[in-house]
Design a protein around this nucleic acid. Structure first.
Lengths: 111, 111
DNA sequence: CTAATTCATTAGTAAATACTAATTTATCGA
DNA sequence: TCGATAAATTAGTATTTACTAATGAATTAG
């Protein structure tokens, strides 16, 4: 019963580590809004599985929902990626690589 | 035997999703180089467990090793984070938020 | 009301995972 | 040469996880 709440980074990473669940997130993101039935379609898994994945994603703060009639529409909540961004930021990866790209770009524009 | 090689994003996410293993990566990163014995120290798990985690991290391309005598020194390979960066980049999170930071920074330097 | 649809939840299962304890291989120092 | 130390590997285990099939709860349509 000692439910040590896991680190947000852990929660988000775990949510996105599973390929099926990550694919669900990607589809939700690409659609502005999408119902569970539509997500199930062509997902290769059952509707129950999709609901379970959505629950994980929601707990991780990666999606939000809106109920309408008997449908529930999900949308992405990219702010949920924030813990990942913060974590990775700590490793300087972004600035290094992205500024390199930026520098290349600028050189191209104005050599 | 049909060893469907998992997506690099999956490999990296999975490697970092476990708190213990992520902590190992963090410690490796903070030290320029660190031996397995030292990593084991105060990790809360056995030396065997640490070696297993290092193996995962290595397969994910997140660490590299150098053997010297009976020690093996590990160092971080932050380029291993590249698949994550690329994946997240697709979601526009970085540029939006980071440019905000950049703007703040510039304002500070040259108000 | 009844039948159909949508989604969530449950119980059960097979596979994956994180660990330990023990062993193995290698290197070092006395 | 021996004993000690470092690290990897192995076998075994308990827990977690991703799934299915089935059921439940709510909403809509005929």
């Amino acid at each position: 019963m000692i439910e040590a709440a896991p680190n947000p980074v852990t929660t988000v990473m775990r949510a996105l580590a599973d390929p099926t669940r990550r694919a669900v997130f990607e589809r939700v993101f690409e659609s502005k809004e999408i119902s569970v039935a539509e997500l199930t379609r062509g997902s290769g898994v059952t509707q129950g599985a999709i609901s379970q994945h959505l629950k994980s994603l929601k707990q991780a703060g990666l999606v939000a929902e809106r109920a309408e009639g008997r449908n529930v529409y999900y949308r992405a909540a990219p702010q949920g990626l924030e813990p990942l961004v913060t974590w990775m930021d700590h490793y300087g990866v972004f600035w290094r690589e992205r500024f390199q790209n930026l520098r290349d770009l600028l050189k191209e524009i104005d050599p």
